[in-house]
Design a protein around this nucleic acid. Structure first.
Length: 569
RNA sequence: CGGAGUGUAGCGCAGUCUGGUAGCGCACCUGGUUUGGGACCAGGUGGUCGUAGGUUCAAAUCCUAUCACUCCGACCA
C-alpha cells in the first residue's frame, strides 16, 4: 500500500472531545470518526487494526472447536419476554417497533437468540457439548458513552455460548475458553490479568474477567503480591485480623465535635488518624427498616457484599438522612454503635479496633476511647468493605496490591438460567428430558483496540504491538521524488516485503522527512526502513523500531533477515 | 435523570461583558523557493456564528425557547 493511495488523515491537534489517551490518539491517527454520541465510523486504517484483533480471536476460537455463526442484530421482543429480560434490562436495551408495531430490540447480547436456535436443533445428549461463537455489532444504550470506542454504545463483540449435558462438561469447556482467552491476549501482545468476578444479577457459578492493565481503567483489580490470586476489588474478601484486639487502655469520654460531618473533619478535630475513627452507616434491613453498619473511617462500604448479608436488604439501599434522626437521635455524621437500638453489624476490621472514636448519637458530639465489649457489646461481624492495598491476600500468600484494568473479556458459567426459562432441553442417556447447561464467553473486540493503545503509546503516538499493527513495515524514501534511484529502491523493497507476506506502507507523497516520520510514528507502524542516497551509497538502510529511540544501520545484505527477526518475535 | 460547561471554517481557538455585519493558527488549493524530524514567500478556497423566535435602524454579541455535545454523579456486560 502506498500513502498516496491510502487515506491517512492525521491531526496535529487533539480534538477537545477526547478525554483519554487512546481516544485522542485514535482520532489523531485517523482510525475512527464520531458520527453521534457513542457511534463511530472505523476508517480504513482503524479497520485494519480491528480486523487484526478479530483474526486472532477467530483463530483461537476455531482452535478449541467453537463454531462460528452469525445471528441477527435485531431481535424480537418475544424472546426477551420469555427469558424475563424484557422487563429486567431497563433503558440500556434499545427497543424499536417495526411497521406493524411489533416490538424488537437491538441486541446488547445474544443469549436469547442462541438459546432459541439451539433448542430447535438440540434433540439428544449425543449432540453435546456444543459451542458457538460470532463476531458481531452490539448495541447498549449506555447512560454516558465516553472514551471513544472504549465505552461506545455500538461496539463489536465476540460472543460465544456453550451447551452441555452436565456440569463437568461445562467446566471443561470453560477451562478451554479460559485458556484460549489467555492465549488471545498474550498473542495480541497485551499485559493482562484474569480475575475472579462477580456473577452479578445473572447468577451462576464461576466467572472470570480478563483485564488489560492500564491506569485509565474503569475497574480496580486486587491481586496477591505472591501467587496468582486476582479478583475484581468488589469481589476480594477481607478477613478478621485473627490476633487479639489491643487492650482497652483509654476511658470512654464524650467530646464536642461541632460542625464535624465527615470522617476527615472528625479525625482532624479529635487529632486521630482516620483508621481510629469508626463510621456508622444506616442501610435498609431485609426484615427491619434499618441496620447500622460499622466500618473503619478509612474503609469503604462494599454494597455487593452488604446486599449478600442476611440482615441487609437486597438490593442494597442507604436509609434516607431524614430517617436517620428518628432512628438514632442524631444526623448522619454523629451516629455511633454505643446505645443504638437497631441491629448493628461491624466490619471485621472495625471489630478489631480498640480505643476508637465514634459518633455519640447526638449532633456535634463524638465518643473517644471506646472499646468493644467494655463499652458496647461486640455486634455480629462480617466482611462488608472493599479490600485495600496491603490487606492480607485471600490465597494466604503475601498481601493485596491494587491496579486498574480495562475489562476486555468475560467468561461465565451460566448454568441453566436461560435454558430453563426458554426450555432448551434434550433427551439424556436414560431417554429422559433434561435441561441444557450453558456457558457464555465475551470479548470486547473494539474495546481491545483502545485498550491496546492505552497500554502502548508514547509522546509521538501509538506504538502497536506487531500483531495489531495496521501495517507492519513503513518504507520512507528520503527525497524519493528527486532521486530516482532512491525511489526505485523503495519500490523494490515494497515489492519484496509484500511478496513475503508483510503488510507494507510505502511513503510516496513527497513529504519532507520530518512530516513523513511523524505520520508513521503517530499511526504506530512497528518497523521503519529509511531509504536515502546516503544509505544507498554506503550499501545500507537506516531502520528504526517504533518502541526504540535509536536508528539501526543495516547492511543491504542483512535487511531481510533483520526484518524477519524483528517481526516474527 | 441531577449538577457544571461548551456550541464561531475540517481541527484548535479569539471575538460575546461594552450590538455596527466575522478573525487567528493548523489543514486544504495555486505558483515559486525548499527537502534527514511537523519549511518559507505570495496568492486563494471555505463559516445562514447549533437551531427557532424576539428586542433593535442594526444581533456571533442582548432576551426566550429548543437541540447537540463534553465533564462530574447516579447506573452498567
Amino acid at each position: 500500500m502506498r500513502t498516496s493511495q491510502f487515506p491517512l488523515s492525521t491531526l496535529k491537534e487533539t480534538p477537545t472531545e477526547a478525554e483519554i489517551i487512546s481516544h485522542q490518539l485514535m482520532l489523531r491517527a485517523g482510525m475512527i470518526r464520531r458520527l453521534a454520541s457513542g457511534l463511530y465510523t472505523w476508517t480504513p486504517l482503524g479497520l485494519r487494526v480491528l480486523r487484526k484483533v478479530e483474526r486472532v480471536v477467530r483463530d483461537e476460537m476455531d482452535g478449541i472447536g467453537a463454531l462460528e455463526l452469525l445471528m441477527p442484530a435485531v431481535q424480537p421482543a418475544e424472546l426477551w419476554q420469555e427469558s424475563g429480560r424484557w422487563q429486567k434490562y431497563g433503558p440500556e436495551l434499545l427497543r424499536v417497533k417495526d411497521r406493524h408495531h411489533r416490538e424488537f430490540c437491538v441486541g446488547p447480547t445474544h443469549e436469547e437468540v442462541i438459546t432459541d436456535y439451539t433448542r430447535r436443533e438440540l434433540k439428544s445428549y449425543r449432540q453435546l457439548p456444543l459451542c458457538y461463537y460470532q463476531v458481531q455489532t452490539k448495541f447498549r444504550d449506555e447512560i454516558r458513552p465516553r472514551f471513544g470506542v472504549m465505552r461506545a454504545r455500538e461496539f463489536i463483540m465476540k460472543d460465544a455460548y456453550s451447551f452441555h449435558a452436565d456440569v463437568a462438561s461445562l467446566k471443561a469447556t470453560y477451562q478451554a475458553m479460559f485458556d484460549a482467552y489467555s492465549r488471545i491476549f498474550t498473542r495480541l501482545g497485551l499485559k493482562f490479568r484474569a480475575v475472579e468476578a462477580d456473577t452479578g444479577s445473572i447468577g451462576g457459578n464461576g466467572s472470570h474477567e480478563f483485564h488489560v492493565l492500564a491506569d485509565s481503567g474503569e475497574d480496580a483489580i486486587a491481586y496477591a503480591t505472591q501467587g496468582d490470586y486476582a479478583a475484581n476489588v468488589e469481589m476480594a474478601p477481607t478477613f478478621p485480623a485473627g490476633t487479639p484486639r489491643p487492650a482497652a487502655t483509654a476511658l470512654m469520654t464524650r467530646v464536642a465535635t461541632p460542625h464535624a460531618k465527615t470522617i476527615d473533619e472528625v479525625a482532624a478535630q479529635l487529632n486521630l488518624p482516620a483508621h481510629r475513627v469508626l463510621k456508622t452507616l444506616l442501610v435498609r434491613g431485609r426484615a427491619v427498616p434499618a441496620v447500622a453498619v460499622v466500618l473503619r473511617g478509612d474503609h469503604e462500604l462494599n454494597d455487593i457484599k452488604a446486599a449478600k448479608h442476611p440482615l441487609i436488604a437486597d438490593p442494597f439501599e442507604f436509609v434516607a438522612p431524614a430517617e436517620a434522626i428518628a432512628l438514632t437521635g442524631a444526623n448522619v455524621g454523629s451516629i455511633g454503635p454505643v446505645g443504638l437500638s437497631i441491629p448493628v453489624i461491624a466490619d471485621y476490621a472495625a471489630a478489631d479496633c480498640a480505643n476508637f472514636a465514634c459518633g455519640a448519637n447526638e449532633d456535634g458530639w463524638h465518643l473517644v476511647g471506646v472499646n468493644w465489649e467494655r463499652d458496647v457489646p461486640l455486634p455480629e461481624t462480617a466482611d462488608l468493605r472493599n479490600a485495600v492495598e496491603g490487606d492480607p491476600a485471600p490465597n494466604g500468600m503475601g498481601t493485596l496490591a491494587i491496579v486498574r484494568g480495562i475489562e476486555v473479556g468475560h467468561v461465565f458459567q451460566l448454568g441453566s438460567t436461560y435454558s430453563a426459562a426458554m426450555k432448551c432441553e434434550f433427551l439424556d442417556e436414560q431417554g429422559k428430558p433434561a435441561t441444557a447447561i450453558m456457558g457464555c464467553y465475551g470479548i470486547g473486540v473494539s474495546r481491545i483496540v483502545a485498550a491496546a493503545i492505552e497500554q502502548n503509546h508514547d509522546t509521538n503516538g501509538i506504538v502497536w504491538p506487531v500483531p495489531l499493527a495496521p501495517f507492519e513495515l513503513a518504507i520512507v524514501p528520503i527525497n524519493g521524488h528527486r532521486a530516482p534511484a532512491v525511489q526505485a529502491e523503495a519500490e523494490r523493497l515494497e515489492a519484496v516485503f509484500t511478496g513475503l507476506g508483510y503488510s507494507v506502507l510505502l511513503e510516496d507523497r513527497g513529504l519532507r522527512p520530518g512530516v513523513a516520520f511523524a505520520d508513521m510514528e503517530l499511526i504506530g507502524i512497528p518497523l521503519r526502513i529509511v531509504v536515502s542516497e546516503r544509505g544507498l551509497a554506503a550499501g545500507e538502510y537506516e531502520t528504526r523500531l517504533r518502541w526504540e529511540r535509536e536508528n539501526h544501520a543495516v547492511a543491504a545484505a542483512d535487511l531481510l533477515a533483520w526484518v524477519q527477526g524483528k517481526l516474527s518475535g
